[in-house]
Amino acid sequence: MRQAIPLMLAATLVAVAPDSLFAQAPDPVLLGEGATVYADFCASCHNARASSERTDLEWVAIVLHMRARANLTKREAAAVLTFLQATNLPEGSASAAGRLDRDEVDPTRTVIPAELRSILSENAINGAAGSPSPAPTKLGDGR
């Protein structure tokens, strides 16, 4: 029994360790680029979809599919994925401000946390192709 304790402890740690425990903060430069790519290339064909429609893992597959369809570079795809995952809601989020059921999402707007709105173009926020697009600022610009 004493000899099995280390194994049992390690197995327990594996079972309970959440993915978010070691999640890294999104690269701010990539995040800003992703917002631009999202507004320019995604919105050139279809309306912007709310990032909360899918889980972070599903967006990985969907962005690969869209990269092939839109002929994006690897970095552009990584940037869009960063943006979608950064603006996605954490699963199981129960806060009144953070929890939005899919049916409650404003259909004309991408779900974007308030602190990110200042860096995003109007296209990304309005979810409409061709909406007025002031040049997005990037995190770290000091604005």
Binding site: P6, L7, A10, L13, A17, Q24, E58, A61
Partner: peptide, 27 residues
């Protein structure tokens, strides 16, 4: 047992992003 324990600990501490790199996704 020592090697197995060390392996499990390393796996636990491996960044989630590295683990996710190899996971197949079905959508």
């Amino acid at each position: 047992r020592a090697v197995a324990t060390a392996g499990l600990v390393v796996l636990t501490l491996m960044p989630a992003s590295v683990q996710a790199q190899n996971r197949s996704i079905f959508v």
